[in-house]
Design a protein around this nucleic acid. Structure first.
Lengths: 204, 204
DNA sequence: TTGACTTATGACTATAAAGTCATTATAATA
DNA sequence: TATTATAATGACTTTATAGTCATAAGTCAA
């Protein structure tokens, strides 16, 4: 996984890509700086020229993954008009991104909690990102409540977290049942299912 | 945390209780066998007379916590008649148990994933317990579908996992907002909220 | 070409914590 | 009480891996 192989121009990104690949392959618990150096085709000391410590590497891996997803998702969602369309798009884009980065999320979700390996400060920034996402959803919910579409007594932020957890649960369920090869049809039907339950519940 | 202090007759339970207490206080990541020995008021070697290794301790801590909750919850749920009553009771009992063991679950949920510290085999048994819970819920869902109460096209097992994730998300949300002191009224209103969303969705 | 500066190296150090085992204490039995 | 069996001890060994730093290689301006 040298710079040419990975198609990255700078070492920072090259190391990050190697780290991500390693985590995808072996999970967080067996991720070591020696393996990373080896995998990136550089010496261990070099990593410390670009990253403060191991925690810094892990934090950046998680951060970059989330950032891309969030930016793509929000830009798609903002094009939609109604709260319901927004929510459907949000679910779809999230599942789509997960499917595009399935090996990464398979580890992140199934290994469920990498976060323990982070320092308290990094855990906080991880939680802030989650919260940012929930806040984004809550704004859609609030608009829906104002328009009389959604129930009035809801705590919009909490509802945001509910939706995130449904999406995550769906992905984990499919990973566990080895539906790693999401195709567009599967993503669409899963989107419809989550949307349906979230909006209308399970009642007939 | 000697045997008298903890009110346990045998060392196995005494060690387990100490381990649990330590985990509640400091989380999984800083849990060490030295601390455990110290906290239990025994020598480190003694732990190894009752547990195979550290993994065995952690596995038993998680197992015993889940087992009690599951047994209590199922016995209450089985007394109810309709699928809807069953689901409401299930949510309530789960939240109630969490509130009774708040410091434990605060760590287990917020530290979200302890599981990484377990061996592959223990991770599997952890997942089996989660699955067992989801299967239990799925049986209620199936009954509801048969009776025409719930939507027909649902994957009942997946729906089971959805409900578990909603309950967990609710607990985490309240922990994060420092609502550690659940009283019965709060549990009731949270139960109603989850039930309402799960059954009817967020639509007005 | 030389010297100054930047980047990279990897053997080495430091440390934390799991797990061991010869020794000692306690309990049971004759 | 003496003898044997069982339980407990904690100093010690082992292992894993994060992080360091003296040395070497590469780059570039004068």
């Amino acid at each position: 996984m040298t710079e040419e192989e990975i198609g990255k121009t700078n070492k920072f990104d090259c190391i990050l890509a190697s780290a991500r690949k390693l985590i995808e392959q072996e999970g967080f618990s067996s991720f070591t700086m020696d393996k990373l150096a080896n995998n990136a085709g550089i010496a261990k000391g070099t990593i410390y020229l670009y990253f403060k410590d191991k925690n810094d590497v892990l934090e950046n891996v998680l951060k970059s993954g989330f950032q891309t997803m969030f930016n793509r998702m929000t830009s798609k969602v903002e094009k939609k008009e109604t709260p319901e369309e927004k929510i459907k798009t949000l679910i779809y884009e999230n599942l789509f991104y997960i499917s595009e980065n399935k090996y990464f999320f398979k580890t992140v979700f199934l290994d469920e909690m990498h976060v323990v390996f982070l320092k308290k400060t990094s855990q906080e920034s991880y939680n802030l990102r989650r919260r940012k996402y929930a806040v984004f959803i809550s704004e859609i919910i609030i608009k829906g409540i104002d328009e009389g579409i959604f129930k009035n007594l809801l705590d919009p932020l909490k509802v945001g977290f509910y939706l995130i957890s449904l999406i995550k649960t769906n992905a984990i369920y499919n990973f566990r049942n080895n539906k790693v090869e999401f195709n567009e049809d599967l993503i669409k039907s899963e989107t419809a299912e989550i949307f349906d339950i979230f909006i209308d519940g399970i009642k007939n």
